[in-house]
Amino acid sequence: MSDAIFQFNQVNRLVLQNITFTLHEEDRLIIFGPSGAGKSTLLHLFNRMDDPEQGEVLFHNKRIEQYDIPQLRRSVGLVLQQPHLFPDTVLDNLKFGPSLFNDWEEGRAERLMEYVNLPIDYLDKSVEELSGGEKQRVSLARTLANKPDVLLLDEPTSALDDRNIEAIEEDLIRLIEHNHLTVVMVTHSMDQAKRIGTKGLYIEEGQVIEYGDINQLLENPNTDQLKQFLHKS
């Protein structure tokens, strides 16, 4: 298929075994499975925060190693589980990525704040003054500041309370659609998977058990493993 954005062929790394799948543009892939299944490891292979021991990862039909690493990470943005903001103002955090590539223009900060639903006057605030939910929004905006095509999300709402989760999810869906982003997200919440995802990849002990349409996976699982997992969660 021509619009394949990522292809994993027989990828092995730590627990991961023979991971093979293709991701198309504007897919929203949910990676899920029990703890220790290798979800975060798999996520980190998309922007070379980690590399496979065997197998190949293709990005736009080219081996991922052929890309300049900073540029790759710029277009395949990662939002970590914890915000890990830099101890400066909100604005400094937003500018961090773009300033590495000399790509910043007036008005981008304000637009980003709007995306993640934070008041503009927060830009001058020190990140220490923010609540947990606000910090995660800034972290999301900081990744979006690089204008990525692909957004990797590593359980971005796991540290938040229900009210915050719902609000961030809404913003996420809105900005994913608005920016035509391809998304890969690790989550423990099957409700969240259903709300955000279009595709699902269920892994257990490092192996792909099922891959396909997310609703299909969640409502009509084919394998006993996935049935059991859904029953438990």
Partner: peptide, 20 residues
């Protein structure tokens, strides 16, 4: 560690990430 990972994932080189 977390901040260094964040900086790298935003496209920083090790030199940039380690600056702080």
């Amino acid at each position: 560690r977390g901040k260094l990972l964040a900086a790298l994932s935003l496209g920083a080189t090790p030199k940039h990430a380690a600056h702080m």
